[in-house]
Design a protein around this nucleic acid. Sequence first.
DNA 1: AGGATATGGTGTATACTAAACACTATGCAG
DNA 2: CTGCATAGTGTTTAGTATACACCATATCCT
Lengths: 225, 225
Amino acid sequence: MQYKTPYTPPTVTVDAVMFQLIDNALNVALIQRSTEPFKGEWALPGGYAPQGETTLQALERIVLHKAGVSILNDLSYIEQLYTFDSVARDPRGHAVAVTYMGCGQNIHPDQAKAVVTFFPVNNLPPMAYDHAEIVKYAHNRLIAKLTYTNAVYAFLPQYFTLAELQTAYEAVFGYELDKRNFRKKFLSLGLTEETDQMRREGAHRPARLHRFKSPDLEVLSRSFD
Amino acid sequence: MQYKTPYTPPTVTVDAVMFQLIDNALNVALIQRSTEPFKGEWALPGGYAPQGETTLQALERIVLHKAGVSILNDLSYIEQLYTFDSVARDPRGHAVAVTYMGCGQNIHPDQAKAVVTFFPVNNLPPMAYDHAEIVKYAHNRLIAKLTYTNAVYAFLPQYFTLAELQTAYEAVFGYELDKRNFRKKFLSLGLTEETDQMRREGAHRPARLHRFKSPDLEVLSRSFD
DNA sequence: AGGATATGGTGTATACTAAACACTATGCAG
DNA sequence: CTGCATAGTGTTTAGTATACACCATATCCT
């Protein structure tokens, strides 16, 4: 298609919403901006996506550089979230932000560059741009994902107890579940299997460790909760 | 963030997947490309999104120009679908495509520019780029939307029969529903109300017309089918 | 006028899923 | 050996989903 004026694309940026459980609470990774605009404020890690790289490739490079986290290696699950493009969202001018959401169970920032800080989703600091809105959107998507897929696996280590599993759901959903009903329903999905290992810790009965049969994302036939 | 080389954004394009029911079948609006690449092939209406316009504004302008359809006026529902950005998807070079999906019940292309053609989703022609994949993705999203929201309204006129309503669900889902169970379940959602109007057509008992109480998209508490 | 036709409209029985709810089991610490 | 802290387990009841068949009624035709 021809334009009278030469075609100028908008700025394209990428941002990552990275979730992790810390102390049984759902947390998000933020960085403190070192430059204007919003210098000193908290923001999602992200940056400019140039020609020739996919947005996911750009995000991997940028988040590794700015936050010391490899979204490909440190996250167990990642998906595109939404593309935010209101003209006013960036004070420097029109920017189209392609956002991604992911979850990990043990995000280890490279200590040399570890400027990333985790905040509980229900106790977030004021954030730059429209990033508070993006985090909220991501949280809603995450709740949906946990109800119709096996995505919880992304928060858990390979071997885990049923109590840990339930806690992961509760942290994401934001409310408590009944232990007996939870186990009955979850186990009936057949996603996991018992192992012969137990976890012994503290002055109480040890817990059996379970693991997922498949490491891949599956859509459930009967959705969960 | 600083780059050694000046920042060059990728090309940003927009595409629309517009659904409509025709003869009780789900159809998609396509146009025949008039220029290379893929000249003569069928494609989703779309084009370049420039700096300074939101992607939705750009889409409205482009689809009106190329297909004679106003997505804002002719569609009852529109939402962002996904952003496709594999580097290889456009033979001219890296393009990021922000796609939208919408539904209408009476899409009237401006006849002077009416180069848009509707194809049934289960009998699509070969399509340019990755557009076949995009349509499939949109169809899956649409099925999901109809199960957990009241989005069917977008396919129906203001006054409709329960048979038409059921047909809309069947056309999107791709399978038939039981009439009695359908009515029981749907009516229990309380989204619609009876009117005192009837539709008389053909040699049989007339059907009562219903209408939606609210014209807005709502997420259902108990999802449908 | 009355019968054929074509679609509109309705109910019940059964199976399954969801929700509420409390006690025993077991390893460790003291 | 007792206390403690978490692990682990079943039943009852209510609600939702599924399967399934017949009567109602306006029109058309003869």
